[in-house]
Structures are given as structure tokens and as C-alpha cells.
């Protein structure tokens, strides 16, 4: 309701608003990158031994959550939210782990392709249910959280399975120089290869259009239902990537969903994607995930209790969002 008014406000001040919001959108991501660089320097100061190995470890440890954040970001941009990301990760992770255990390396290639397709199917099911039942996204995906988690438990009752060797080498180690972790490159290449073409295409425009104003999008000829299903399909695809990297980095599949869903929502908001939809990108959330993870590492170096680190994580989340909405409030006032 309030969003309709927002858009009305914006349309009156279109020339300045469009430019301003563009600068601000990129400004947020750039600001995050700046914070990340400062944090890396601080980390180096705290722990002089932190170097290439540390960066590698960081890249490997953030990989699953980074993919989950991308998955969540796409759903949120299209004015949805997917609470089943963690469960879809668990399901794709156990399926890949169960199928790859003690099989040939070549068979694993088939498994990876199959699991990615499965991710698309899971996402499409979520999206179709939302469109068909007209129940709010958050409720449908909350219910699907139970369904996919149950399916994951059916596949593997307890953590187990295995991962192909090439998957593990693909995510571990470094490439070209010791400072460029393979995991980071993998993440960027996959996300860029899938997201940038979509973002530039008609589909990308439709995603942002149904996110910022579904009615306006509908009236200008965008099929809101189809676009929504596509958005959730992409969310499913990236959740599958997250599940696969979970298997690859841990070497096993775990049927119980981790804390990824809620953390992905947090990362998306920190990454500058508006929960009201239609604003933000997928790279901001990735940087946000790295920052959150690096902060935890720093606090371990500083011998801060891990539980206080959780507190700090919550406070940072709330604090950053508060600052963000304060800036927005101040902008609206004059």
C-alpha cells in the first residue's frame, strides 16, 4: 500500500529520482566493497599471518551462502521472498551426495547437470504454486520449506554420501596467483554468466518491473505470472548451485537445512536489495555475505566469544538496515 504512494512520489520527480536512485544503487554496492577492503586491511593488521590461505578459506566458506544470497536476491527483486532456499539446498545437496558416492568422476558430471535441472524444477513448483493458489509468497514458501526438507530426509536419513574429486578441486585451492581463490572465481563466473545476460534482456526488465509495480508491469504487457514463475525457477537454480557447493566443500550431504534461508534474507537486505521489490542487484548481497563472514573471522582472531559474534551479527544487520531506512526517510522528507 505504501509502495504505491512511493512510486507515485517518484514518478513526479522522475528525472532526478532515476539518476539519483541509480547512483545510490551502485553506491550501496561500492560502499560495501569499500567496507570489505577496509575489513581485509583490518584483518591483516589484527592477524599478520592472514594472507592468501586465509582468503582462500574465506572464499570456500562463503560459497554456499553466497549462492543462497543470489537465489534469495532474485526472488526479492521480483517482489517475492523464498523461505525454502535452505530446504532446497538441503535437498539438492543430499541428492548429489547420495548419487555421487563411490561413482565415477564422469557420472558426477551427469549428476551435477541433473541436480541443477532439479533445482529449476523445485523453483518452478514454488513459483507455480504461488501463482496458482494466489497465497502470499511467504506462506507458500514457508510450507514448501517443510515439503523440501521432508524430501531431503527421505533421500538421506542421516548425513552421508560423497562428492566427486573434481568438484572438490573446483572449489578448493587457487588459480593463476595464490590470491585468487578458485571458489571466488567459480562464484563470479557462474553468477555473471547466468545473471548478466538475463539482467540485460527483456526478462530482466520484466523481473524488475513486476518487482517495483506489478500492476504497471501488467498494464504495459508484462506477463506477471510467467515472470514470477521464472524468477522462482532462477531462485531454485541458484539454490541448487548452493546445495552442490555445500556437498563439494563439506564432502557429504546433510538432510537438515542449515541457517541459510534467514541468513540469505539478511544478506539480501544488507546487499541493498529492497524487500519491497524492484531495487538492487545480486552482487551487493554477495559482498554482504563476504563481509559478514569476514567479521566473524576477525572476531575469532580477536578472541571474541563466538556467541557475542552472533550478537554482533544481529546488531550489524539491524544497524545497517536502520541507517539505510533513515537515509531513505530523510530523502523523502523535503
Amino acid at each position: 500500500m505504501s509502495t504505491t504512494v512511493d512510486t507515485a512520489d517518484q514518478s513526479t520527480a522522475r528525472p532526478i529520482g532515476a539518476l539519483g536512485s541509480m547512483i545510490r544503487r551502485h553506491g550501496w554496492t561500492l560502499g560495501l566493497v569499500g567496507i570489505l577492503l577496509v575489513l581485509l586491511v583490518v584483518t591483516r593488521l589484527i592477524q599478520p599471518t592472514y594472507g592468501a590461505a586465509g582468503v582462500q578459506g574465506l572464499a570456500v566458506s562463503v560459497l554456499p551462502l553466497a549462492f543462497a544470497a543470489v537465489a534469495q536476491a532474485i526472488a526479492v527483486i521480483a517482489r517475492g521472498i523464498d523461505l525454502s532456499v535452505g530446504s532446497m539446498m538441503a535437498l539438492t545437496s543430499v541428492i548429489s551426495a547420495a548419487l555421487m558416492e563411490e561413482r565415477s568422476e564422469g557420472f558426477a558430471v551427469l549428476v551435477v547437470i541433473g541436480v541443477l535441472l532439479l533445482g529449476c524444477v523445485l523453483g518452478a513448483v514454488n513459483g507455480s504454486l504461488i501463482v496458482l493458489t494466489r497465497v502470499p509468497d511467504i506462506v507458500v514458501t514457508l510450507a514448501m520449506l517443510f515439503v523440501w526438507a521432508g524430501c531431503a530426509l527421505l533421500v538421506l536419513g542421516t548425513p552421508g554420501g560423497g562428492s566427486a574429486e573434481w568438484l572438490r578441486t573446483l572449489t578448493g585451492g587457487s588459480i593463476v596467483s595464490a590470491w585468487i581463490p578458485r571458489a571466488a572465481l567459480l562464484l563470479l563466473v557462474i553468477v555473471a554468466a547466468i545473471w548478466i545476460p538475463i539482467r540485460r534482456s527483456r526478462l530482466g526488465l520484466s523481473l524488475y518491473a513486476i518487482g517495483s509495480d506489478p500492476l504497471a508491469a501488467y498494464r504495459s504487457g508484462v506477463s506477471v505470472t510467467r515472470t514470477k514463475i521464472v524468477a522462482y525457477t532462477l531462485t531454485g537454480l541458484f539454490s541448487a548451485f548452493a546445495g552442490l557447493t555445500l556437498t563439494a566443500t563439506t564432502g557429504i550431504g546433510t538432510p537438515v537445512p542449515g541457517p541459510y534461508t534467514l541468513l540469505s534474507v539478511a544478506a539480501v537486505v544488507l546487499g541493498g536489495v529492497s524487500l519491497a521489490g524492484g531495487r538492487g542487484g545480486v552482487f551487493g548481497p554477495i559482498v554482504a555475505v563476504v563481509i559478514l563472514s569476514l567479521l566473524r573471522t576477525d572476531m575469532t582472531f580477536l578472541n571474541v566469544n563466538t556467541n557475542l559474534a552472533t550478537v554482533a551479527q544481529g546488531l550489524i544487520l539491524v544497524g545497517v538496515v536502520m541507517v539505510g531506512s533513515l537515509l531513505q526517510l530523510r530523502k523523502r522528507e523535503p
Binding site: V269, L275, N307, L308, T310, V311, L317, V318, V321
Partner: peptide
């Protein structure tokens, strides 16, 4: 702040303090 984010953040804070 969106209630989802606000209460999610507070639940992290509470959990952390409870663990301490």
C-alpha cells in the same frame, strides 16, 4: 525497518546473549 529483518536480527542478538 521491515519487521522480518528487525525481528530476525533481534533473534540473533537474543540467541547470542542466551549462549553467553
Amino acid at each position: 525497518v521491515h519487521p522480518l529483518i528487525m525481528t530476525l536480527g533481534m533473534s540473533l542478538v537474543v540467541l547470542g546473549f542466551a549462549n553467553v
